[in-house]
Simulated assay, not measured.
Amino acid sequence: MSSAASPTPHAAGGPTRAVLVGVDLGGHAPFDPTLDELALLAESAGDVAVARIIARRKAPDAALFVGSGKADEIKAMVAATAAQGVIFDQALSPAQQRNLEQHLGCPVADRTSLILDIFGQRAQSHEGKLQVELARLQYMATRLVRRWSHLERQAGGIGMRGGPGEAQIELDRRMIGDRIKTVKDRLEKVKRQRGTQRKARERRGTFRVSLVGYTNAGKSTLFNALVKARSYAADQLFATLDTTTRQLWLAEAGGSVSLSDTVGFIRDLPHKLVEAFEATLQEAADADLLLHVVDAASPNLAEQMAEVERVLAEIGADTVPQVLVYNKCDLLDDAAQPRADHDEVEAHPGVRRPRVFVSARDGRGLDTLRQVIAGVVRARLNVEPVEPVTTE
């Protein structure tokens, strides 16, 4: 379970057994009827899903999010499966989370705290750790009453007038506020450093390409295949958090471009996390070209592409030219295989984008992708095509 959900220790240090809960609130809110993505998130955090429960409501219950009847059903499922916690696919308010924990008798995490927990585990660089710490501090700041309920044993201020634990809670709130300010100041320094690096690349005339896409679309695998790098890549959500930049040689363009691998996007990515990763995501906003990597074998392809477009708009990168890269074509059935490795599609009315079908795993379509990137570079820089060198 997420550390934000105050998990209870379990035997032998094994994975936490969790019941997954999804609430269908109608067409106005995103909903995964299978809870498959939440199960992958739980697995990425080190938990194991032992049961799944779906609830349907017109609106969230103010106290328990799911209502008392469904809460009783969840409680019975927790007992029947010997689960040690419950994970909700939606964001819970501090009061809802506190009430659910009291009703169910076990820790409760929501989608936001689960994603924050994964980010906390995966961040490697100093910048990445600062970004995750900021988002988690901002999340914790809204949940001090719940997290510090044990402090009610402590007396309040002078003369016992402050109420149980009030002085300690205020102290912790002030400490978190001070820490948030410190982390923000450090991230601002990192942001200035990145700005200096970007200006240096601009002075050198470096063409900047950034990989973006839904988490687990295969960005890092594609990055490694293109530049022969050894960035961490795995078949799991948020395998990569820290931006990695390498030079990609394009023979057809007669030079190299700067290629950056960025953090993946996901549905309901916490807004505070987007804010915290502003310095990293700025790589995409400042790019000359985005390679929007898509999992061609995903049944939720359209929804995932739409979510990436939404986040790109949020960070001001929606006007950057894109090449759509349909990855994992090796997982498609024979009937679903594309007829050509390269075509064009209408992304928006009046906006057409190149589309390339590839398999980063077996190398299919990578030469075509390099040629497409080189074509964009030549068009932007008004460079004539470079003829391949032949030997007698």
Rank of each mutant, 00 (worst) to 15 (best):
T206L: 15
T206P: 10
F207N: 12
F207L: 04
R208A: 11
R208C: 12
R208H: 15
R208K: 15
V209D: 04
S210G: 09
L211I: 14
G213T: 01
G213S: 07
G213Y: 00
T215G: 10
A217D: 03
K219W: 07
K219N: 07
S220W: 01
T221W: 06
T221S: 15
T221H: 13
F223V: 10
F223D: 13
N224L: 08
N224H: 01
N224I: 06
A225E: 06
V227K: 04
V227Y: 12
K228P: 01
K228H: 14
K228I: 05
A229Y: 06
R230W: 09
S231G: 12
A233P: 11
A233N: 07
A233G: 06
A234Y: 09
Q236I: 13
L237C: 09
F238C: 01
A239Y: 08
D242V: 09
T243L: 14
T244Q: 12
T245Y: 08
W249H: 15
L250R: 01
A251V: 10
E252R: 14
E252W: 11
A253K: 01
A253I: 05
V257S: 00
V257I: 14
S258T: 06
S258P: 08
L259F: 04
I266P: 00
I266Q: 04
R267S: 12
D268A: 11
D268Y: 09
H271W: 11
V274F: 09
V274W: 10
F277C: 08
F277K: 02
A279P: 04
A279N: 06
A279I: 09
L281F: 03
L281I: 03
Q282Y: 03
E283C: 07
E283H: 08
A285M: 07
A285Y: 08
D286H: 05
D286I: 04
A287G: 09
D288M: 06
L289P: 01
L289Y: 01
L289S: 00
L291A: 06
H292Y: 06
